[in-house]
Design a protein around this nucleic acid. Sequence first.
DNA 1: CATCCGTATGTTATCGCTAACGGTGCAATC
DNA 2: GATTGCACCGTTAGCGATAACATACGGATG
Lengths: 343, 343
Amino acid sequence: MARSPNDTRRPLTLRDVSEASGVSEMTVSRVLRNRGDVSEATREKVLEAARTLGYVPNKIAGALASQRVNLVGVIIPSLSNLVFPEVLSGISTELEDTGLQPVVGVTDYSPEKEETVLYEMLSWRPSGVIIAGLEHTATARAMLDNAGVPVVEIMDVDGEGVDSVVGISHRRAGLQMAQAIVAAGYRKIGFLGTKMPEDHRARKRLEGFSEGLSQAGIALRDTEFYSGGSALLKGREMTEAMLARSPDIDFLYYSNDMIGAGGLLYCLEKGLDVPGQLGLAGFNGVELLDGLPRRLATMDACRREIGRKAAEIVAAQSGKTSAAGEVVELQPVIQFGDTIRKP
Amino acid sequence: MARSPNDTRRPLTLRDVSEASGVSEMTVSRVLRNRGDVSEATREKVLEAARTLGYVPNKIAGALASQRVNLVGVIIPSLSNLVFPEVLSGISTELEDTGLQPVVGVTDYSPEKEETVLYEMLSWRPSGVIIAGLEHTATARAMLDNAGVPVVEIMDVDGEGVDSVVGISHRRAGLQMAQAIVAAGYRKIGFLGTKMPEDHRARKRLEGFSEGLSQAGIALRDTEFYSGGSALLKGREMTEAMLARSPDIDFLYYSNDMIGAGGLLYCLEKGLDVPGQLGLAGFNGVELLDGLPRRLATMDACRREIGRKAAEIVAAQSGKTSAAGEVVELQPVIQFGDTIRKP
DNA sequence: CATCCGTATGTTATCGCTAACGGTGCAATC
DNA sequence: GATTGCACCGTTAGCGATAACATACGGATG
C-alpha cells in the first residue's frame, strides 16, 4: 500500500491521483466527495488509484475553495471535571452523521485563555461554536458576535446570551434544593464548594440556595471552600472541618457530587446517622455515585442532553445565513437518594 | 468594537484591514504575524485597524500558503476514562509555548473509528500525530507511515511502533504486581477487569500478571470481566460475585483503580479484613483514590509524563524533514497503600 | 556627489482544491 | 437528419493568505 515507487516524499495532491487514473482533477474531486455525476467505471478507477497511492485529501485547500469547514468549535473550562466529557459525548453523538466534527478547546476556567482559544478557533472558520457559560470578556463576546456562525452558549441560562443558549438555571436548581431540604425538616445548614471565583455556575447555585433558605427564614449556618486537589479527599477534609467547627449542623449541601461523595464516605466512617442526624446533597448526578455505599442526594444537570441539544442547534443552523437565537432551558430533577430524610 | 459601518456581513479579509490602514496586504500580514521588519508607526496603525474591524486572520488560507499548520492531532480511545484527560493535560502544558495546538479525536476503542478519525485529522495536515496504542488497522498504519509528520504512539511500549513510542510496559507492570503479591504471601488470586476486547493494555497487563504468577507456580484462581456502566458499581458487583463463587480467594487484582475502589468499598462494608484476610490492588494511580477510606494499592501509569514526553518529541521534530523514531519507556512504580500485607 | 546599504514596503506567483460553467458524445425525439 | 436532453467530464477562475523576490527611500561612506 502506497508510496513504493518513486517516493520523493512530495506530498500527494489531486493531480497525482488524476494522473494515475487518467482523468481530470475535477473528476477525482467529484469521486472523492461523492458529488456530481461520475460513471461507475471511472469512479472505480479513481478510487483504486487513490487507494494505492495512499492519497489523503487536503481539507485546508478544500475548505478555502469551498468556503466550508466541517468543524464545530467546542470551548469548555476543563476535561477533568467529568461533567464536560459527558457534554462532549452528547455533542459527538448528535453530530455523528451530520458530517460535522467537534474540535475541543479547554480554558482552565480562565477568561483570558478562553479569549485566546476562541480566537484560535475562529481563525479556522468553524461552522459553529459551542461554548460553556454566559460570562465572557468583552473581546470574546465581540468575537462571538461577529463570528457569523451559529453560537450556542451552554450549561447555564441565568443571563444574557449572544445567540442561542442551552442549559439549566443553576440559581433555580439551588433554590429548589434549598426548598427540598427545608421541607425535609433540616434547619442548620452548611454549604461546601469550590473557591474558584470563575465558576459562575457554582456561584449561582449558592445564590439560589441562600435565597431559598432566606424565604424560609433560615440563614446559612456555615460555609467552606476549596480549590484544587482530589475532590473526594477535599470533600472529606472539608466535612471534617465543618463538623468540628459547627457540630450542631444538620445538613451539608455540596456544590458537586465528587466532594459530596467524599463527605458521605467520611460520615459513614464516623458512624454518623445519615440522613437522620445529618443530611447530605450534592449536584450533578454523576454515574460514580451508583457505586457508593449509599446513594447521595443530587440533582441531575442534564449534561448529555445539553450537549445533544446544542449540537442539534448548530447542525440545524449551519449553512443558514442567520437564524434567531434559541433559548432552551432544561429542567433538572432532584434525586433524593438515601441522604435526605423523607419529609 | 467592530462592524458597525457598512456591515454587509462579508467576511473580513486582509484586504479590508489593508484598505482601512492604507498599507499593502503583505504589510498587514507581517504585522499580524510579527514577522519581518515593520516600522513602529505602521504597526500601530495596522493593529488599530484590525482591532476596530474585529478582524480574525484566516488560518485556512494561511496554512495553505505557508504549508504550515500549528495543529497536533491527538487520538485517544475515550475521554471518560480519567486517564486520557490527564495525558491530554500533559500534552497541553508541554505544547503551551511552542505555538502548537492539540486537536483531540476520540475512537471509543473502535479500530474502525480510529481509522476514520485519523483520516479526518490527516486531511488537515497537522504538524504531528499522537495516538494511543500500538495496535491499528493496516490502513491506519499505512496512513501513519505516509503522513510525513512525526508520529508518537503512546501509553504502551509492548510492540512495534510506527515512529516514536512513549509509554510503559503493561506486561511488565502486570508481572511486577504479581511478584509483589506473591512476595506478600498471597496465593489464591483472582483477576477482575474489562471485557473490552480492544483494550490491549489491560490484556497485556493480565498476560504479564499471569506469567508472574506462573513463575511462582501459581495459577489464577478466578476471573471476572465487565463492560460498560459505572465502574465503581461494577467493581462492587464483580467483587461480590467473585467472593461468592470463590470464597477462599485471598487477593483481588483489578485492571483499573475505579473498579478497585468499588471492590474496596464493598469489602470494607462487609467488614472483611483488608489486607489481612484479603488483599486488593488496582492500576493507574488516580487521584480519586486519595479520598477513599483506605488507600488502594496501585501502580502509577505515568499518564501526565507520557503526555509531556510525547508532546516534547512532536515539538522537537515538527519542522524537521525526518528524524529517527525514539522509544521512551517510563517506569511505573508500585504504591502499596494499605491493601497489601507488608511482606 | 555617486555609491552602497539596510530598512520598510509593495508585487507576483503560488498553495491544493472546488464552484461555476462549458463542452462532448450518444440516445431519444420530432 | 436536425434537435433536444442527459450523463459525464474538462476548463477557468478564484478562495485568502504567504514566500520570494522586487523596489523605494534616507542616510552613511568614500
